[in-house]
Lab assay of single mutants.
Amino acid sequence: MTEYKLVVVGAGGVGKSALTIQLIQNHFVDEYDPTIEDSYRKQVVIDGETCLLDILDTAGQEEYSAMRDQYMRTGEGFLCVFAINNTKSFEDIHHYREQIKRVKDSEDVPMVLVGNKCDLPSRTVDTKQAQDLARSYGIPFIETSAKTRQGVDDAFYTLVREIRKHKEKMSKDGKKKKKKSKTKCVIM
């Protein structure tokens, strides 16, 4: 069974824990209790493949930012979460993405942009803004509501699919490099 290491990042209060708990335990946590770091595991079937999701729910508070490099190193894919009623959390996505790329030393890291709290009427981040940002990053965008469960499975499952595509691409690139290195030079 394939294991996928997913990391949920975003500013404090955007609903990272609520999304994760909704996926794992099928219930909505409405009281806000700032996370330092929590880890969850769940076995699911995605596109006919049974897999184990190892999900790291991270601290959004700035005082825990020193811990970010460590979990970013171990993560295979990242859910970059903002709240649709919090423009600052949307603007912060850029910083999370840049930090992930720096730590992973790669421009090509599996990510999904997630606009959470889409059940709320007080939207300050337009869907088109988020779609445009995701398009500019070359990553999928999904709106979710941890409260109603809308888009929750889709967000995590899409990230797994992005990781699969990335692994497939990397193995193809690896095979191309191996083929090239088999060419021999004969000096007579």
Rank of each mutant, 00 (worst) to 15 (best):
Q22R: 08
I55N: 08
Y64F: 10
Q150R: 11
I21W: 14
S89D: 03
V9W: 02
D30M: 05
D30N: 09
K179Q: 13
N26F: 02
T20P: 15
D92M: 03
F82A: 12
I93R: 00
V9Q: 01
R123T: 13
C80F: 15
L133N: 01
Q131M: 09
M188V: 07
L79A: 02
D54A: 04
F78D: 00
E107D: 12
V14M: 08
L133E: 06
A155P: 08
A130R: 01
D173K: 02
G13D: 10
K177T: 11
R135F: 06
D105S: 04
G13V: 05
I21T: 15
G75D: 02
Y4D: 11
S122D: 13
A83F: 01
Q61E: 13
D92I: 11
T183D: 15
E31C: 07
D57L: 11
F156R: 01
A66R: 04
L159G: 01
T58W: 05
T2K: 14
Q150I: 14
D119S: 02
T58S: 10
S106P: 04
G15Q: 00
G75M: 08
T35Y: 04
L159W: 01
I163G: 01
A130W: 10
K16Q: 00
L6N: 00
L23G: 15
I84G: 15
K178D: 15
L52M: 13
A18W: 05
L56R: 14
K104R: 13
Y137M: 14
S17L: 00
G174L: 12
Y71R: 08
P34G: 07
S106I: 10
A11R: 02
P110K: 01
V114P: 00
Y157G: 13
S89I: 10
F90C: 05
M188C: 13
V7E: 04
T50L: 03
T35V: 06
T74L: 07
L159K: 00
F141W: 12
D153W: 12
S181A: 13
R102A: 08
T20S: 12
I142A: 01
K178G: 13
I46H: 06
L113N: 00
E91G: 03
R102S: 09
Y64A: 15
L53G: 04
S145Y: 05
I84M: 15
G151W: 11
I21A: 15
K167F: 03
Y71T: 14
D30Q: 11
E76T: 13
K179E: 14
K147E: 15
V8D: 00
D54E: 13
F156Q: 01
Q129A: 13
K184S: 11
K182E: 15
L79G: 00
D47N: 07
K176R: 14
K42M: 07
V112N: 00
P140A: 12
T58V: 12
C185P: 15
L23I: 05
I187S: 15
S136N: 13
C118W: 07
R123N: 13
S89C: 02
L6F: 08
N26I: 05
K104L: 12
K16L: 03
Q22N: 14
D57I: 15
I100M: 04
C118K: 03
S145E: 03
N26T: 06
E98G: 02
L79T: 00
T124V: 10
G12S: 07
V9S: 01
K176H: 13
D108H: 10
V44M: 03
Q70E: 14
S39P: 08
N86Q: 03
G115R: 01
I93Y: 02
S106V: 08
K169C: 11
K42V: 06
K172E: 15
K167A: 07
T58Q: 09
Y32W: 07
E62P: 10
T87P: 15
A83H: 04
G115L: 11
E168P: 04
E63H: 06
M188Q: 15
E143I: 11
K176W: 09
E3K: 12
L159E: 00
E76R: 03
I139H: 06
D119P: 01
T35C: 05
C51K: 06
H95Y: 14
A83L: 01
V14R: 01
A11K: 01
A66Y: 09
P110F: 02
E91C: 02
P34E: 12
P34V: 09
D153N: 13
C118V: 08
G10M: 00
V152I: 14
V29W: 08
M188R: 15
A130I: 13
R102M: 07
H95P: 02
M111G: 01
T58A: 09
E98K: 10
R164D: 09
T183Y: 01
E162K: 03
T50P: 10
T183L: 02
K117E: 06
E37H: 02
D108I: 05
L56C: 14
D33Q: 09
Q150Y: 14
D154N: 12
G77R: 00
T158D: 13
F141H: 03
R135T: 10
L113T: 01
L23K: 13
A18E: 09
E37I: 12
D105E: 13
L23F: 09
R41P: 12
G75F: 09
G13S: 06
K176D: 07
D105I: 02
N86I: 03
D33F: 07
Y4S: 07
R135K: 07
Y157R: 12
G13Y: 07
I21V: 13
K128W: 10
L6W: 01
V14Q: 07
K178L: 13
K172I: 14
Q25W: 02
D69V: 01
Y157T: 15
K16T: 14
D119Y: 01
A11Y: 03
E107R: 05
L52W: 09
L23V: 07
L120F: 09
D119F: 00
Y32Q: 08
H166V: 06
K184D: 15
V186G: 15
Q131W: 05
D47H: 04
V29F: 09
L53Q: 06
Q22M: 02
V152G: 05
K180A: 11
D126P: 04
I139F: 08
D105F: 01
G77C: 06
I142L: 11
L56A: 13
T50C: 07
Y32R: 10
V112I: 11
G12E: 09
T183M: 04
I36Q: 13
V14G: 06
I163N: 04
K177V: 13
K167E: 07
E107C: 13
K128C: 12
E3T: 11
K180Y: 14
T148N: 14
K177E: 15
E37F: 08
K5L: 01
D126A: 10
V103L: 13
K42L: 08
V186D: 15
I139N: 05
K128D: 13
E62T: 08
R97H: 06
M67D: 15
G75P: 07
Y137V: 07
E91D: 13
Q131F: 04
E37K: 12
V8E: 00
G174P: 14
M67Q: 12
R123Y: 09
V112H: 01
A18N: 07
G77Y: 04
T58K: 03
L159N: 00
H27I: 05
V112M: 02
V29R: 12
E62W: 04
G48F: 02
K177A: 11
I100P: 00
R149W: 04
A83W: 01
Q25V: 01
G15R: 00
D132N: 10
Q43W: 03
T58N: 08
L159P: 00
K88I: 04
Y64D: 15
T87R: 10
V186Y: 02
E162V: 04
K176Q: 14
R149Q: 03
D69I: 00
G77H: 00
P110S: 02
I100L: 06
S39Y: 04
D33G: 10
V14I: 12
D47P: 05
V8T: 01
V9E: 00
K42E: 07
G13A: 08
G13R: 06
D92Y: 11
G60M: 06
L23W: 11
G12V: 06
S106F: 11
